Simulated assay, not measured.
Amino acid sequence: MDPADLRATMPVTSEVAYLNTGASSPAPRPVVEAMTDWVEYHNFEAPAEAGIYPHAWDTYEAVRETIAGFLGTTPESIGLTGSTAEGISVIASSIDFEPGDVLVRTDLEHPAGILPFDRMADLHGLEVRTLETTNGRLDLDDLRDVVADARLLAMSSVSWSHGTRLPVEEVVEIAHEAGAQVLIDAVQSPGQRPVDLESWGADFVAGSGHKWLLGPWGAGFLYVAPDTIDSLTPRRIGYRGVEDPTGSPYEYKAGTARFELGTTSPAPHVGLATAIDLLESVGMQSVQARIERLTDRLKAGLGDRLISPRDYESGLVTFQAEAPEATVEALAEAGVVVRPLPFPPGAVRASVHAFNTVDDIDRLLEAL
């Protein structure tokens, strides 16, 4: 499959220049069809054949393997969640925080990476430190200072405000040297560039499939490093997270599946697995190269309005507008879908994926 074939599976692309994947992507037809087929079989045929529960349980494991393979890790390290926010909340609530523990985050974080720890601060008396950045960039010396006595560092892999790619591997090394664990909000990375979670070295990684992975809402993932999982204390329990649901005493599963609870629909994750297969058929190197070419064109056309880095780092391109909300509304009327941002001031963001075209980019520039 090439990017043109991928685009042909997405009906919305014939209607508008859709440049808002960093918020949520439209799903390709095969993704929606795979979910529909799964639901129909599960309700119409599985009761008389595989069985409703065995069919679901086999599906959980199959999609776990697909997600793990795509992210360069093992199935045991992957838990199935509904969203990035759920994964972050699971980790936040499973750490045995003590009063005075230090949590460090950057000023680039999405509310999904802020609210769970604000709640933990209220509950446990944490000290929350916010590392200030400049134009979406971290100063690693400042990071060393602020994490020197930290319990946890929570950070995004790509800033949702500037589209900057943050140096995850270097950050993890610095935090670990200081004795801090690291949680990465990865929602803006998988699907637009190759990702190998093992090479990142983070203790925890949360993400979701409804952005660059082209999957549906409701299909997230949580990675926990094998040598870190026993440092967590799950606060929730369900029969999917234990070795023997009828055994006494209960025993949590060895891997990240211990955080899964009970009867949730596998359909969204079926859609995500199908979306991953589609992206792999295009090839992640090809996806990234196309995003780079298209963002280069957009950045050149934006000129001095550009807020994001001039050189390629991601498909997120933020630019200045006098009235962001009005600009986004006017662009929508012209058939171009982008979004305003709460920061930096006066910012509008376009998200460029491999299914986009030169015509999409030029349509945005002409409308501006």
Rank of each mutant, 00 (worst) to 15 (best):
R7F: 00
S14W: 04
S14T: 11
V16D: 05
A17M: 01
G22C: 14
A27T: 14
W38H: 09
E40M: 03
Y41A: 03
H42N: 08
H42M: 07
A50S: 09
Y53L: 13
A56R: 10
A56K: 15
W57A: 13
D58M: 04
V63S: 07
F70L: 04
T73P: 06
T74L: 03
P75D: 09
I78P: 13
L80H: 02
T84A: 14
T84W: 03
A85H: 13
D101K: 04
V104I: 14
T106H: 14
H110I: 15
A112Q: 10
R119E: 14
G136M: 08
G136Q: 12
G136A: 06
R144E: 15
D145H: 13
A148T: 08
A150T: 07
A150I: 06
R151N: 07
W160R: 11
T164R: 11
V171I: 15
V182F: 11
I184T: 01
Q188N: 14
S189Y: 03
P190C: 05
Q192K: 08
V195S: 04
E198R: 14
F204N: 06
F204H: 06
F204R: 05
G207F: 03
L213G: 00
P216T: 12
A219Q: 04
V224Q: 01
A225I: 07
D227I: 09
P234Q: 08
R240C: 15
T246C: 00
S248L: 08
Y252I: 09
K253A: 08
E260H: 14
T263G: 05
H269K: 05
L272F: 07
S281C: 00
V282N: 04
V287Y: 01
A289D: 11
R290L: 02
L302Q: 05
I307V: 12
E313V: 05
S314L: 10
S314R: 12
G315E: 11
F319Q: 03
E325I: 03
V328F: 02
V328E: 06
V328M: 07
E329N: 00
A332Q: 08
E333G: 15
A334W: 03
A334M: 03
R339C: 00
R339H: 08
G346I: 04
V352P: 02
H353R: 06
T357P: 00
T357R: 05
D359N: 14
D362Q: 12
D362Y: 06
D362H: 04
R363S: 08
L364T: 09
L365R: 13
A367G: 07
A367Y: 08
